[in-house]
Each structure stands twice: as C-alpha cells, then as structure tokens.
C-alpha cells in the first residue's frame, strides 16, 4: 500500500461529523480491541484497525467495508479508551458518511418506511391494542404524521 494514494482528508471528514471528533486522538493502545465483544467473533473486526484505516485515509475501503455495520453499540470501547476517542460514536459518524455515500445497509429504507407509516418500528394496530386491553394495559396510539414531517417522507402505502 502506498500512503500517497490514500486520502489524508478522510480523517478530517470523519472528525467533522458529529461523534467523530475524537478519532484523531487515537494512540493505538488497543484497549478498545481488547474489550470489543464483536472483535472476538468476527475476523478482521478490530476497532483499533478501523481507526487506523481512517487515519491512513483508506476511504473507500472503510466506507465499503461490511465490518462497519457490525458494531453492537455496547460502548465498551468507549468506556475503556484513555484518549476519549469514543469509537462507538466515531463509527456512527463513519456509518452516516457511508450511508450518504450510498454504502448504507439495505434495511435503512425499510426502517424509514416503517417510521413514516407508523411512527414506530412495530405497528400497533387493532389486534395489538385488543391484546393490550385484554391484559388491562392502555391502548397505544400511533403518531406517524410527526415522523413524516421530520423525515421528510410520505407514508409508503400502508395505513396511516
């Protein structure tokens, strides 16, 4: 790998994204990797390595990597980091960039559709409310209109 071919601006871009501020402070102590529950299960998933790739400026490789979507957001890395890199949040920043660049996971659209349609991930229809009533629980109302406005989308069919 030739460093000259990498994009030194990438780390600055990540740092400019909310949550990404800490990335450049990393001094590669590896405490994050030691504590990452995903690193133990997935070959190549290594917070310290991901940070290094960003710092080196290997933009495409990072954004296109399926690994960035595997964070369980357990915050363990963030808790143990002596430099306040806040890797969970850094990764959120990276994922946001990736999503904007068209590398997002396919499930995103479905989530937005669902929120636009129901204001929640799981629909609460008559059936659900009936069940709740049977158990003595209050009914739950959906408020998708708010979400449509916030997300700037129309409900994708379905009931509103």
């Amino acid at each position: 790998m030739l460093l000259n071919d990498c994009d030194p601006g990438f780390k600055h871009q990540v740092a400019a994204e909310p949550g990404g501020q800490g990335i450049k402070a990393c001094f590669a102590c590896a405490a994050c990797t030691a504590r990452c529950p995903v690193a133990g299960h997935v070959e190549g998933y290594d917070p310290r390595r991901l940070i290094r790739l960003v710092l080196l400026g290997r933009r495409e490789e990072v954004l296109a990597s399926p690994l960035i979507w595997l964070c369980s957001t357990c915050y363990s890395c963030q808790e143990v980091c002596p430099q306040q890199v806040s890797f969970t949040e850094v990764l959120t920043a990276i994922k946001n960039i990736a999503a904007r660049a068209g590398y997002g996971p396919p499930a995103t659209e479905a989530v937005i559709d669902q929120l636009a349609a129901h204001g929640r991930l799981l629909e609460v229809g008559e059936f659900e409310n009936q069940r709740r009533t049977d158990l003595g629980l209050p009914e739950v109302a959906e408020a998708p209109a708010h979400f449509q406005k916030v997300l700037g989308v129309e409900p994708a069919g379905g009931k509103s």
Binding site: C29, A30, A31, C32, T33, A34, R35, C36, A39, G40, G44, D46, R48, R49, S76, V80, P82
Partner: peptide
C-alpha cells in the same frame, strides 16, 4: 493497554488485544 483484569480459576486474567483480537 489491557482492556480489563478478571478473576480466573488460577489467578487474575488480563484481557488484552494481540493480533487484532482479544
């Protein structure tokens, strides 16, 4: 920099990263 130290059966265990994993 180790991630944590836990109690193991034969003594304290140090959890650290080597070769990209814990």
């Amino acid at each position: 920099m180790p991630g944590e130290v836990t109690a193991g059966p034969g003594g304290p265990q140090v959890v650290y990263a080597a070769g990209g994993r814990s």
